[in-house]
């Protein structure tokens, strides 16, 4: 299974609609980096509203993909992390310190714009 990556001007938008399994997550990491390279995108919003569970492996893949994208010059914002997912991550001691977040896709785009203008 592959997660669709949409292009909107200089941004890439991804809405993850299922709980990620390991293969899908790794495939997504690769697809996203290729797409950033292809399109020369400045910013990425990954919306996780429909994701009900993130374990330590998926969290690591997501954290990595944010850092890798940053290296390639694209800022990433994670949006729509559900309360249960956030609390579970905190319980496990996973903080994702360096990752910008926003409530939803719309605010995520606003945040990207602010950061890119600054």
């Amino acid at each position: 299974m592959r997660i669709p990556i949409l292009k909107l001007k200089n941004y890439l938008l991804i809405s993850v609609q299922v709980d990620l399994d390991d293969q899908t997550a790794l495939q997504f990491q690769e697809d996203l980096l290729n797409k950033i390279h292809q399109e020369g995108s400045f910013g990425v919003v990954i919306d996780l509203t429909s994701v009900e569970m993130i374990d330590s492996f998926i969290a690591k893949v997501l954290g990595d993909v944010v850092e890798m994208s940053n290296l390639m010059g694209a800022k990433v914002v994670l949006t729509g992390i559900q309360p249960g997912v956030a609390i579970t991550l905190i319980d496990m001691g996973i903080v994702l310190d360096e990752v910008p977040t926003a409530l939803d896709l719309e605010q995520g785009l606003d945040k990207l714009q602010q950061e890119l203008e600054a």
Binding site: T79, I81, P83, V85, I90, T101
Partner: peptide, 12 residues
């Protein structure tokens, strides 16, 4: 501190 970290994760 944990609460505020969780708050940040959901985007506030």
């Amino acid at each position: 501190i944990q609460a505020s970290e969780a708050v940040r994760l959901v985007g506030a």
